[in-house]
């Protein structure tokens, strides 16, 4: 029997996220590429003590209208709800915004742990987790706070620091189209961290604009092969 990974809605797709889980959230940080329906479902579902790995910390609904007219929900809601124990990402809060994002407020109150990672290092740590590699050396962060406590090595006369892989229990990602098998294609810059995170989680849950029958996506155009995708939710925007 052919596999069908289609879930009826976002609530069912995230129902088994457990307390203490590590969650990767795709996108770049703002509206384009964020799995907004899955995020809202997770906020409703209520799992606690989460470790969230995402490029940005989210700005929250109040500040989001500064990015997109009318605003939008983002993973700021998970911080606002107090569901997150630790954040790992490259831009927890935007310096150009008031210090009122849910994550920045929690951080200033000492209520959330934070690990700030250079963006390229974040992407590569996730790729290492995805690809079964034990880490890598990079020049990004040499001589900065990022290098603190890390092994360094001179390679071809230049200093590098060693970075470890990242994994997740669940990845919540956004794609443009999925077939029912879970092959994914993306749209423009809404691709960003989504294909990278899709590969690094035990359970990858994707929110798509449209689900199509198997065979309708051009095999040459598929960015994420179905082996990485476990659950699909259609959420038309």
């Amino acid at each position: 029997m052919a596999v069908n990974k289609l879930f009826p809605n976002a609530d069912k797709a995230v129902s088994d996220v457990f307390d203490g889980a590590t969650i990767m959230i795709g996108g770049f940080g703002s509206y384009g590429g964020l799995p907004i329906n899955l995020i809202v479902a997770l906020a409703k579902q209520g799992a606690n003590d989460l470790t969230v790995i995402a490029n940005m910390g989210g700005v929250g609904l109040e500040l989001s209208s500064r990015i997109k007219p009318g605003g939008y929900q983002d993973h700021g809601i998970l911080f606002k709800n107090g569901q997150v124990k630790k954040f790992i990402g490259s831009v927890p809060a935007l310096g150009g915004m008031p210090p009122t994002s849910p994550l920045e407020k929690l951080y200033n109150e000492g209520k959330v742990e934070m690990e700030t990672v250079p963006q390229g290092t974040l992407a590569e740590r996730i790729r290492c987790g995805a690809g079964g590699l034990g880490g890598f050396y990079t020049r990004a962060g040499v001589g900065t706070v990022v290098a603190k406590g890390k092994e360094t090595k001179i390679i071809n006369g230049k200093e590098y620091i060693f970075e470890l892989p990242l994994y997740a229990d669940f990845a919540l990602i956004k794609a443009h189209k999925a077939d029912t098998l879970g092959n994914l294609v993306y749209r423009k810059t809404a691709r960003c961290f989504n294909p990278v995170m899709a590969m690094a989680a035990k359970t990858t849950i994707v929110e798509v604009d449209e689900v199509v029958p198997v065979g309708q996506l051009d095999p040459e155009a598929i960015i994420t092969p179905h082996v990485y995708v476990h659950r699909i939710v259609e959420a038309r925007r």
């Binding site: 910390g57 990402g89 490259s90 831009v91 927890p92 809060a93 935007l94 310096g95 210090p99 994002s101 994550l103 920045e104 951080y107 200033n108 934070m114 700030t116 250079p118 963006q119 390229g120 290092t121 990079t138 020049r139 990004a140 962060g141 040499v142 900065t144 990022v146």
Partner: peptide, 15 residues
């Protein structure tokens, strides 16, 4: 502003 991050700046500056 302890919660601002470097984004891609460190990678860009060395690369």
């Amino acid at each position: 502003r302890g919660a601002t991050g470097m984004g891609g700046g460190m990678d860009l500056a060395v690369g």
